[in-house]
């Protein structure tokens, strides 16, 4: 699983998908997860990275990231290569 690599995320939380021309807004945590997804890290690595930076328990984070990934899929921002 990885996010479309040509997607651009700016520091104001705007996310642009050049292949469809659609724009999105992401919140800071969303931007961070999307960035990490671009680098194709495993979910485990992403989770520990976020946990290093944010005050959150693992259980909540796992659940929320799964939900976020579903939102990315709904918006055709993720290629599911599994």
């Amino acid at each position: 699983m990885k996010i479309n690599p040509n997607i651009a995320i700016n520091e104001n939380g705007l996310l642009f998908n050049p292949s469809t021309g659609e724009s999105f807004r992401v919140n800071p945590t969303g931007a961070r997860v999307a960035e990490l997804l671009k680098e194709e890290r495993s979910l485990d690595v992403i989770i520990s990275k976020i946990q290093e930076e944010y005050e959150v328990d693992r259980y909540t984070l796992e659940k929320d990231i799964a939900d976020f990934i579903q939102l990315l899929k709904n918006n055709a921002l993720i290629q599911n290569n599994e």
Binding site: V26, T29, V33
Partner: peptide, 8 residues
């Protein structure tokens, strides 16, 4: 922490 969200 705030849960990650994205909005079109």
């Amino acid at each position: 922490y705030e849960r990650p969200v994205i909005k079109r």
